[in-house]
Write a protein that binds this DNA or RNA. Structure first.
Lengths: 121, 121
DNA sequence: CAGAATCCACCGAGATACTG
DNA sequence: CAGTATCTCGGTGGATTCTG
């Protein structure tokens, strides 16, 4: 499994155009995207999510855990390690998420046009 | 086209369990659902959405308009009439919305279990 | 390393009252 | 009929600092 790149989400700036939201809070969708390929440590998640403070990231992870979408596992062995992973339920959410994101990609021009028209009016 | 019933959304109480959100604000998804079968007047929308104040409903409608999902048309003819309608873009969103809602229906038990486990812990 | 504690600013959302 | 005008309140998200 490849490491998560720091610029993973840098270009998804105008994500406010996407009319779909996943999870309870602002960062849930990005966390899910980070866990797509397998389990990740807290510090691994902080690399692409470097604009999120640890407090807020923790909050988001706790919400996802309460919603049954991820699991949190703690190891104390050599050094302290906490690993987050998608549950089967969380993994099954990827289908509808991809459907929604495909729609957004397909209609990006129209979304952009509508937004710009809304600004100049 | 049938009138919108006042109890249309009364039973969708624990919708916080649904990890998908559509549109910018809290009421956008319900407005879209109301417009599914055709254009509706402001006062028609207020029937099923009787728990939403006119100010907040107006806000939500303006957002949907800015996002290119609905149109607002004003007639002054006999009496004043303002009609809201899904755009082709808004209508095309129904597909992914249905996909997402089907997922939620399919996994309702798991979502409920996770939520209850989160409460007692 | 993986957070917790504290404080704070902003904004969505609601209550209430009023209007072209 | 279809909104607008204020006011308020609570909660999300962020900055900063501290800790087992």
């Amino acid at each position: 499994m490849e490491p998560l790149r720091a610029d993973m989400f840098d270009e998804i700036c105008p994500s406010t155009l996407n009319p779909f939201r996943f999870g309870r809070d602002k960062w849930a969708a990005l966390v899910i995207a980070c866990l797509e390929d397998g389990p990740r440590r807290f510090s691994e998640l902080r690399v692409p999510l470097h604009r999120v403070t640890p407090k807020v990231l923790t909050q988001s992870l706790r919400h996802l855990e309460q919603d049954g979408l991820i699991t949190r596992t703690e190891y104390a062995e050599p050094v302290r390690r906490v690993v987050y992973e998608l549950t089967p339920l969380g993994h099954s959410m990827l289908g509808p998420i991809r459907t929604a994101c495909a729609w957004t990609a397909d209609h990006w021009d129209e979304l952009l046009d509508a937004h710009e028209a809304g600004i100049t009016r």
